[in-house]
Each structure stands twice: as C-alpha cells, then as structure tokens.
Amino acid sequence: MKPTSITGVLGDFHGPDEALAAAARVRSEGWTHFDMLTPFAVHGMEDAMGQRRSWIPWVTGGLALFGILFAQAFQNYVMVYDWPMNFGGKPHASWPAFVPITFELMVLCAAIGSAITAIVAGKKDTVPQPPPLLVKTGATVDRFVLWISSTDPKWQADAAQRFVQSLGADDVRLVEVEGANHA
C-alpha cells in the first residue's frame, strides 16, 4: 500500500447563510488557507472570506487598450505605409473607417483574454484544493463545503477537524491522498 498523507479537512453546510457565517468564523479565527466550495456563487462570500475584489477588470482594461492600439496600428500600417491605394480620393489615414474594426478587436482581445485569465487565475490564485476526480465533495450538487488545506500555518489535523465540527458542519472528514503531501 502506498503511503497516504492528509491534505486538508472538509465539512458540509446546507445553505448559503450557514456557509457565509462559517466562512466569516474561519477567517476571524485566523485561518488563511481555506476555501468554500459552493454550487453557485454566493453573494457576500468574498467579504466573508476577506477577499478583495477580483483584479480581472484591470486585465480586461489592459487587453482592450492593446486591441485598440493593435487595430489602429495595423490598419494604418496597411493602408498608409505598406500598400497605399487611392479610393475615391479619400485620405489614406481615414480613421473613421478604421473605427469598426478597432472596436471589434478591442472586444475580441478583452473578452477572450479576460475569460482565459479568469480560468487560469481560478487555478493559480488559490490555495491547494481537493482533487475533484478523487474527492466527491457534493459542492456541484447542493453542498456548501468548507475546505481547510493542510498548508495553512495553523494546521493541526485534530484541531482543524474539531474546529470545523464546532462550526456546525456535517460530515466532517479529513482528506487523504496517496503520495507525499502536496505542500
């Protein structure tokens, strides 16, 4: 049998209100490497967990600016510098004609870039998570699952388990996976 190691503790709640209250308690007790796995985004959970607003809009803004500059630069390069042609005596750098493509490229860069960034950020800007294929948390069904990772500086398996039980969670269980601790 391969060695196993404990990677954290899970405890179930059954409604968003309990989950919010629990998250606020976990935070106020000084835990940092914890998470709440929920079937849908619970309003107020960011505040309860002490998270700041997501920085995704800044990425969007930057990418939108990139889209605008790229589209303008590219169209002017083609129409003015690389292959200037005379269409009905209009100026080569006819910026109003470049507006539609500039707008579309702005939206394209910003939208797709933001979506990819959000997916990557959900994986990277986080704490170690229970592996979804090995641990069925029920968080995609109807459970609001508190997760405290063993990487937390305060981590002690028994204490963490007792603490999650004291919050009123059901089905409190330690998560053990094969192999060395991921921390």
Binding site: S54, T60, A118, T140
Partner: peptide, 22 residues
Amino acid sequence: GWNGSQRAWRHYESAYMVLAAL
C-alpha cells in the same frame, strides 16, 4: 477541474460580468 471553489468563483464572476459588459 472546476470544483466550485470560492477562490475560483471570485474571478469567474468578475470575468462573467466583464464579458456581459463587453
């Protein structure tokens, strides 16, 4: 590998709002 993590929802919700606005 979505698991419903709030730390992922936070960015997800923000991106969803941004995409709606775009």
